[in-house]
């Protein structure tokens, strides 16, 4: 049965936003009445006002852009490496034997534990943050690519061979598309790790970016700016998730689970 059957098709998409709106209203009422100090939680209206001010001054876009750049470059480097290593380990037994244990050992070190070392190596430069993001992204992509390739139905590979596909045809027409659902799961995990890593590394050592903006605002007790930064992270995370979903729906049209 359809949820909220009496609502029109236009009104139904608004349903998921009812709870957030209600929370906002309660929040606004609590701060305006003085029940909650504005230093602890600024009113939503104050947050909106400071977001607007930051937008007008260009500061917001400046920080947003540097965070976005770090996220995407780090993601491409780490994801690319993880994908390549996963392909090699998944397809070539001797490569797996040689490298998999090493990768699994490194994987089990929380990459954020490397922050002190990364600061010593790279200072508070861009390289350190890219390094951390790439490291955080590498393992989910590696693992899921590896398992995706291993899980491809051996019967389909055998069929492909007996129907005249060469090694390249087997790889591009059977193995890669068969591993794709799993690879995309890895990509979604990796996107989550990207933002997590970025938040932490930007709040510890940075001279630009949303995390830097938040830490700077904290020093001056600008709670409203801190909240703006947090909301921006939420928004960016949502955008990344939408992109991953779009990819899944496009690439996995054949799969009834995504259609």
């Amino acid at each position: 049965m359809m949820a909220f059957p009496r609502l029109s098709a236009l009104a139904r998409p608004l349903v998921p936003w009812l709870v957030p709106l209600l929370l906002l209203a309660v929040w606004q009422a609590a701060t305006q009445s003085g029940f909650v100090s504005s230093r602890i939680a600024p009113a939503p209206s104050a947050v909106a006002a400071s977001a607007y001010a930051l937008l007008i001054s260009g500061e917001l876009l400046h920080h947003l852009w540097s965070s976005f750049q770090r996220a995407s470059i780090g993601f491409l480097i780490g994801g690319g490496l993880g994908f390549a290593l996963g392909l090699l380990s998944g397809s070539i037994r001797s490569f797996e034997l040689l490298f998999d244990t090493t990768v699994q050992m490194i994987r089990n070190v929380p990459h954020l534990a490397l922050i002190p070392l990364v600061i010593l190596w790279f200072g508070i430069d861009e390289t350190g943050k890219l390094f951390l993001v790439a490291l955080g992204v590498l393992f989910p992509v590696y693992l899921n690519t590896f398992h995706g390739i291993r899980a491809v139905d051996k019967g389909l590979i055998e069929m492909g061979k007996s129907y005249g596909l060469g090694p390249i045809g087997i790889f591009t027409q059977v193995i890669l598309p068969g591993a794709l659902p799993s690879i995309l799961v890895g990509v979604r995990f990796a996107l989550g790790f990207t933002w997590l890593t970025l938040i932490v590394s930007e709040t510890i050592a940075a001279s630009s970016g949303i995390g830097y903006m938040a830490m700077n605002a904290r020093e001056f007790f600008q709670t409203d700016v801190v909240v703006v930064a947090i909301l921006l992270y939420a928004l960016l995370g949502k955008v990344a998730d939408l992109a991953a979903r779009w990819l899944e729906q496009r690439l996995l049209r054949w799969n009834p689970a995504y259609a």
Binding site: Y163, P177, W254, N255
Partner: peptide, 15 residues
Amino acid sequence: RLLPWKSVWANVTLG
């Protein structure tokens, strides 16, 4: 043993 990610006709012309 049809490839689920290829349409029916593309499966038929495999190879």
